[in-house]
Amino acid sequence: MHWTASPLSSALGAVATQVSTGGSAKASATPARPKRPLIPAVLLKFVMALSGFVLVAYLVVHMIGNLQIFWGPTAINGYAEWLRTLLEPVLGWEGFVWVVRIALLASVIGHIWAATLLALRAKRARPVKYAAGNKVKGSYTTRTMRWGGVIVLLFVIYHILDLTVGVANPVGAHLKPYENITAGFAPDRWYVTLFYVIALLAIWFHLRHGLWSAIQTLGWNSNRREKTLKAIATVFSTVLIVGFLIVPISATFGWI
């Protein structure tokens, strides 16, 4: 590795790095290298970060909207109606809601598409695994991003069937979120509440790493800011997830 500038020469102000000519003389003995991927990994990460931010922004609005259930049936049912009247002269009844839904669907597809390509590329990048296992590990949150993401996706599908479409909900009435929520998380359906709690914790894990990782991907991280950014990501995810958790838990314990 003779092309590396030694620390001493850098200290003296010489920054030129030399290239050794005979660096890979043995390259001919190696098997064929994979072809250039169509999209560089850095751009795939960029897609992941941006689509992730869209989804997180939605989650914030979703969480605040949910809290209206504590002001009674008129408040939250009225909120559901009001969302459909937004920009009605331009988009028509429910038009705004559909615009948001399409943006969300595009983000979810982009997020999963980029994650799948990166996961496949990672698999190809290490064809032979370590016999002793890879002992240098990131935190639990970083190691559960991929499968955790799959769990979150399955939850989102169930959640849409439960409280958007209504087929998995005992009431399932359109534009009656108060009735749907109180019936869906009724005390005798405690297992549904438990499932929501577990899924929300999975989202908490996903966000804790995801938020910071997105910041790093967009190039806004620095050594000085790293600890603060990680702390902000943790506090933000915790506040968001607690905000979501109190609704099903309150419904099950009859606090609404």
């Binding site: 990460k45 990166l118 990048a125 890879n134 970083t142």
Partner: peptide
């Protein structure tokens, strides 16, 4: 990317 290295997921390993 040509060499077949994977993409970064910011694990910090």
């Amino acid at each position: 990317d040509d060499a077949g290295f994977g993409g970064c997921t910011n694990t910090g390993a």
